[in-house]
Simulated scan of single mutants.
Amino acid sequence: MLESEVEHSRRRRSANYPLEFKRQLAQQACDSTVSVSQLALQHGLNTNMLFRWRRQLKAGLLDQAKLVPVTLAQTSPISKCPTGSGLIEIRIGEAAVRIEGSPDPATLTLVLKGLRA
């Protein structure tokens, strides 16, 4: 491989497509009368990318962010809680996630991402 090719491959980045664009193409790819490979070709995309977007659409990952109602429950004053302790409880329908203590940010991020799926 030539040095210029190595430099080019290092600079090459995947494009960030707008969420609405991904959603529209994924919806078209779900149509049984549409050829996914032809659709990809028309938009200059890799066919595998459209299949990935279609899976994401079906999993709800391409949905617009939705606001959910939040209610605050009466709790004991914060001053009575020992340092480093806390409670986060998230209820969605019949499901509830309860996190006690002081979770590290990475763990909390994983839990919240899991709720989106």
Results as ranks from 00 to 15, higher is better:
A117R: 14
L67K: 15
S9L: 15
G44W: 06
R11T: 00
A26I: 14
K22I: 12
E5V: 08
A26W: 01
A106S: 09
G44K: 05
V68R: 11
G101E: 07
A106V: 14
T33G: 04
L57V: 09
F21S: 03
P103H: 04
S76W: 12
D104R: 02
V70F: 03
L19F: 05
L19Q: 13
E100I: 01
K22E: 14
E20T: 14
L115C: 13
G86C: 01
T83L: 01
E89Q: 12
R11D: 00
G44T: 03
R116C: 07
T83A: 06
T47A: 10
P18D: 10
Q56M: 15
V36T: 15
A65P: 15
A106G: 07
P18N: 09
L19S: 13
E89W: 01
Q64P: 13
L39H: 05
A26T: 09
A29K: 04
T83G: 00
P82Q: 06
G86Y: 01
A106I: 09
L72S: 03
G60D: 05
P69E: 02
L45V: 13
P82D: 04
E94H: 15
V70L: 04
Q28G: 02
D63M: 03
L45M: 15
L41E: 14
S79K: 09
C30K: 11
G93N: 12
L25Q: 10
Q38P: 05
L110M: 08
A95C: 08
G44E: 03
I92S: 07
K113Y: 08
K58F: 00
L19G: 03
M1I: 06
M1F: 07
I90R: 12
F51E: 13
E7I: 00
R23F: 04
F51P: 05
T75P: 00
Q42W: 01
K22M: 15
Q56D: 13
M1A: 11
S102I: 01
E94F: 14
K58M: 10
F21M: 07
M1Y: 05
M49N: 05
Y17F: 09
A29N: 11
V34Y: 02
A40V: 00
R116E: 14
E100S: 08
A106P: 00
V36S: 04
N46A: 14
S85V: 10
R55I: 09
L108C: 12
D31H: 04
D63S: 09
E7P: 00
R10I: 07
L41I: 02
I92A: 11
E100G: 04
A15C: 03
